[in-house]
């Protein structure tokens, strides 16, 4: 579904991702965990082209969308095509990033109307349906500033779903939330996983990774150090750095 081969990412002199091979298959829920600064968010952002890779290849749906060597674009793939491919990836941010000048329902309607030329009535009907799914249809006409963090993040998930993505990327979706609001967001994500959505989740929520993840990935210092089923990952880790990490947090 989505695959990267030998990608490197530099921020100036900082080597953030080191020759990473990574893939997410149809129907998988891949949870990526690791300490801060390990490159997990950067990896996710390289997938939907919010960050440019320095070296390597990125495939979406088995199609090459980016191929670079030393920051040089080898393939010269049409930028518009890449934007189109990236519509298949929905993204949920740590800080929600809802559009503050639009109501909840308008947040969901904007991209389908602008990008896909969906008419207003259809877009609204679909948006209300999605808000129902995340349990917020009564907040449809509220501006984001009037919603709690958990509600905002649920709207943000619904907004990403409004573009009918084939895969959802979550970048620490609960890290900016008050502890008592984490549950409602995780519940929506669990329901989404159950419905068969392909997901990649960068998270610190070990419980979620254990319960919902089909594969858990441990990253540290720009490398993937361990990749396993949740059971093996948490109960029988092999990598010493992962053992150390799990000992600290569990």
């Amino acid at each position: 579904m989505i695959k990267v081969e030998k990608i490197d990412k530099y921020f100036g002199d900082l080597h953030v991702l080191k020759e990473i091979d990574f893939h997410v298959d149809q129907g998988e829920v891949v949870c990526v965990i690791g300490p801060s600064g390990s490159g997990k968010s950067t990896l996710l952002r390289c997938l939907n082209q919010l960050e440019r890779i320095t070296n390597g290849k990125v495939y979406i749906d088995n199609e090459l969308v980016d191929y670079r060597k030393n920051d040089k674009d080898i393939m010269h793939i049409n930028h518009e095509d890449v934007v189109k491919m990236c519509q298949e990836l929905g993204m949920v941010f740590q800080r929600f990033n809802l559009f503050p000048h639009k109501t909840a329902v308008e947040n969901l309607m904007l991209a389908p109307m602008v990008v896909k030329d969906v008419d207003k009535k259809t877009a609204r009907a679909k948006a209300i349906e999605l808000l129902k799914m995340v349990g917020l249809e009564d907040k449809a006409d509220e501006y984001p500033v009037r919603l709690s963090g958990g509600q905002q993040q649920r709207v943000a998930i619904a907004r990403a779903l409004a573009m009918e993505p084939k895969i959802m990327l979550f970048d620490e979706p609960t890290s900016a939330l008050d502890p008592e609001l984490v549950g409602e967001v995780l519940a929506v994500m669990k329901a989404l996983a159950k419905s068969g959505m392909t997901m990649m989740v960068v998270t610190h929520e070990m419980g979620f990774a254990k319960e919902v993840g089909s594969r858990v990935v441990f990253m540290d210092d720009g490398r993937i150090l361990e990749e396993a089923t949740p059971d093996k990952f948490f109960n029988n880790p092999t990598n010493p750095r992962l053992k150390e990490f799990l000992a600290k947090i569990l």
Binding site: N48, Q49, L50, E80, V83, K84, C86, Q87, L89, G90, M91, F93, R95, N97, L98, F99, P100, H101, L110, A111, V114, V115, R159, A160, M163
Partner: peptide
């Protein structure tokens, strides 16, 4: 305007121009 707004717009498939005129400038 917060950088996250442009990122959110791009992640939803908007082009730079669409993001500017539909998301950033109205704010």
């Amino acid at each position: 305007i917060d950088k996250g707004q442009m990122e959110a717009a791009k992640a939803l498939g908007l082009t730079y121009g669409q993001a500017m005129f539909k998301v950033i400038i109205p704010q």
